[in-house]
Amino acid sequence: MNLTLKIWRQKSPDDKGGMVTYPMKDVESHMSFLEMLDVLNNDLITKGEEPVAFDHDCREGICGTCSMVINGRPHGPDSAITTCQLHMRKFNDGDTIHIEPFRAKSFPVLKDLTVDRGAFERIMQAGGFISVNTSGNTIDANTIPIRKDHADMAFDAATCIGCGACVAACKNSSAMLFVSAKVSQLALLPQGHTERTERVLKMVHQMDAEGFGTCSNTGACAAECPKEISLDNIARLNREYLRASFVSGE
């Protein structure tokens, strides 16, 4: 198939940037979206132009590195997948495809489609852990049974890949879905209970400090989340936050 690509090009963080059009010929439907971009880049390099910079690594939907808005949707038109799992069979001959970076004040563009998601790192550092030393001198793993349904829910929340699509999908650039996934995982497990209060307060505080917007419950985040992280997690985060504010007297 033949396609027209309109891609965001931006040399550096302080460059203004803009959309550039590239015609693409003979794209095969079994190629992945990123393989299609590989071909484009190969052509650009051969012609002496700079290739399009984009983040990617695992190319199987688990590392959370790839991050593009394709035709207005983070990770593109298919549901429950990342950009790297998108295949060209989802497009038709003659299509025009708009490709842009994840847009959010807290995710500054570094180059072309590459953004800086350092804000997520700092949120995790603020409290996304259980304070246990790595000595190995813990209790036997089977000492505390955990209800399977709780373990499963914790697992579902823990599958967040930290890609940031939820932020890019949200009109307020809220990071609530991302934060709620970690808070939920740890709140659902007995191991996480001791630090429950502090954790949610610190993570939410850091989220605000990073300049992410507020959540207005439109659900765009969950709709675009490649790991189908549920909105229930946001509800749980709100409950945890309220509880923590009450307990800590804030």
Binding site: F129, I130, V132, T138, I139, A141, P145, I146, K148, A151, D152, A154, F155, A158, Q185, L186, L189, Q191, G192
Partner: peptide
């Protein structure tokens, strides 16, 4: 202990 949600 770190909260890794292994299958149960």
């Amino acid at each position: 202990a770190q909260g890794v949600p292994f299958a149960r």
